[in-house]
């Protein structure tokens, strides 16, 4: 980070020995109002986050008090009989997000490398724009497209094709009937949705790799691919991991598209073709009809989601920040 003195107009911690002008002068009064105003706006952000934590946490508190942390590990979610085990939803959330990350990461890395290293100049801008556009598509439209295109495709073509394969078709992860609404559908849509986030972070950190790093490898006779594999990617590794985790955060919190595609059955099944549930989808589906302990349980799920995404985002930001700091040093 470059140090440019004038940009930071905080009053210096070491005040000038002589006073900073009259305390009642009109201009300084204006400055003070301005400083208070923008400080108040800046304070809005921590306060808002605190308010969210308090509101949701207190609403979910009865559930935590009654069941303790154990409700996170019970596997039966049945509001009618007062059983609020969130494990299936947690399982669905983690599995769908991790699988999506697994699929999206190589793809996103490929796109990022393509854009930062290989793409001819005339292709670079339009391709980057189109990939970024994926992030601009509303979640509900992904859901709609998933319902009418992805699900029929999976149900009528992909699933039968996989099931007809010898050995692979008999694997437990492809067991059971394929109705379409399934973990797999959610995973695929999530893959597409997080791709732009991961790839744009990866592209940023790749572009931040100093030229000298590339030139050193090229000068040693490495091919461009070897340069990228051995000099560029390792240098940017921690930033790329940050981008991946950022994508994970997106996937964990994604609501509408997943709600529309995952099937919404609170069960833990190994099969990708089986319907599942996620924490966000659970809230989206049941919140409007919930009351009493059911409502509190959903708020507790919301609190857990809140905490998980904060942790995940915190880690991601820290990793990206570490790379950008190293790059500047």
């Amino acid at each position: 980070m470059s140090v440019d003195p004038g940009a930071d107009s905080t009053p210096s911690p070491v005040t000038p020995i002589r006073g900073d002008g009259p305390k009642v002068s009109g201009q300084n009064f204006g400055d003070r109002i301005y400083r208070w105003t923008i400080t108040a706006f800046a304070l809005c952000i921590p306060l808002l986050l605190l308010l969210i934590a308090v509101e949701i946490g207190s609403a979910g508190w009865p559930t935590f008090r009654e069941h303790g942390i154990s409700f996170l590990f019970l596997s039966t979610w049945d509001p009618n009989s007062g059983q609020y085990g969130v494990l299936p939803a947690i399982y669905g959330t983690l599995i769908s997000s991790l699988l999506a990350i697994l699929l999206a990461t190589p793809l996103a890395l490929g796109v990022a490398i393509f854009l930062s290293e290989f793409a001819p100049a005339w292709l670079r801008t339009p391709v980057a724009f189109l990939v970024d556009l994926l992030a601009a598509i509303p979640s509900v439209i992904y859901g709609l497209w998933g319902i009418f295109f992805l699900i029929p495709l999976l149900r009528d073509h992909v699933a039968p094709a996989i099931k007809s394969l010898p050995v692979i078709g008999a694997l437990p992860i492809f067991a059971g009937p394929a109705y379409g609404n399934s973990l797999l559908a959610a995973v695929l849509i999530l893959t597409i949705m997080i791709l732009p986030y991961t790839s744009s972070v990866a592209r940023e950190v790749l572009l931040a790799v100093p030229r000298s790093q590339r030139e050193a490898a090229l000068a040693l006779g490495a091919t461009r691919w070897e340069t990228i594999r051995d000099a560029v990617v390792p240098y940017a590794k921690s930033g790329i991991v940050g981008g991946v985790i950022l994508g994970l955060g997106r996937a964990i919190g994604e609501t509408m598209a997943v709600t529309m595609l995952i099937g919404n059955v609170a069960q833990i099944k190994a099969s990708l073709f089986a319907p599942a549930y996620t924490m966000a989808a659970l809230i989206a589906n049941e919140f409007s009809e919930a009351s009493g302990p059911h409502l509190s349980a959903l708020m507790a799920v919301g609190s857990a989601l809140f905490l998980i995404t904060i942790a995940v985002n915190g880690i991601a930001r820290w990793l990206v920040w570490r790379v950008s700091r190293e790059g500047a040093a």
């Binding site: 003195p5 210096s12 070491v14 000038p16 020995i17 002589r18 900073d20």
Partner: peptide, 10 residues
């Protein structure tokens, strides 16, 4: 001079 951060004049 005093508009830059962490500066002092006497």
């Amino acid at each position: 001079h005093e508009t830059a951060p962490d500066t002092r004049v006497s």
